[in-house]
């Protein structure tokens, strides 16, 4: 009952708590403000004293040094360009020697090439022999080497003719090259 009556002392207590809270908030506010100012100034100093300017000057100076060697750089560029082009040409180039070696090594001694034509993708060959067995062995070699030696892809026998007058067998092959 006395508490309800004596309202003044209770109000004093409330106001002293409120003052204390206010004081604490004020302290936090000042600390926060201080931190903000320190961070702001610190970042400004950090940014303004960065080594970017020095590095930029050094970069310019090195560029100047390199500029004096431009003749050599141009020559190196030209050499690189030539070598790259030659490399590309060689990559696209087909080894005709391998084709010639492969096909000619398969030819039996009693046979001969009547005609022989190699293009980028095909080989047309006409073989004549007095022995059918020799013609057969040549054909067997070519067929057995399809997809094996990375040269022949597909073999088509265009014709096999037995010429009674000359006593020769003539084989015409169309070979698709890999």
């Amino acid at each position: 009952m006395s508490k309800e009556v004596n309202l003044i002392s209770s109000r004093r207590k409330e106001s002293s708590i409120s003052y204390r809270q206010a004081g604490n908030i004020k302290k936090v506010a000042y600390i926060f403000l201080g931190l903000c100012v320190i961070a702001s100034v610190g970042l400004f100093v950090l940014n303004s004293t960065s080594e970017l300017g020095t590095l930029s000057k050094k970069e310019d100076s090195l560029n100047q040094t390199l500029h004096t060697q431009q003749k050599k750089i141009v020559k190196m560029t030209l050499i690189k360009d030539r070598i790259e082009s030659i490399s590309d040409i060689q990559k696209k180039s087909k080894s005709y020697e391998d084709i010639l070696v492969n096909v000619s090594s398969a030819l039996p001694q009693d046979s001969k090439f009547d005609s022989f034509e190699v293009t980028k993708n095909s080989l047309n060959v006409t073989v004549s022999s007095s022995s059918l067995l020799s013609v057969n062995s040549f054909l067997d070699y070519i067929i057995n080497n399809i997809n094996k030696n990375h040269i022949f892809q597909k073999v088509t026998v265009s014709s096999l003719v037995g010429d009674i007058q000359s006593g020769k067998y003539i084989l015409v092959l169309d070979v698709t090259l890999l």
């Binding site: 180039s93 087909k94 010639l100 090439f113 005609s115 022989f116 034509e117 293009t119």
Partner: peptide, 9 residues
Amino acid sequence: ISDIADIQI
């Protein structure tokens, strides 16, 4: 530098 395009014998 050269390359072969066609051979006929």
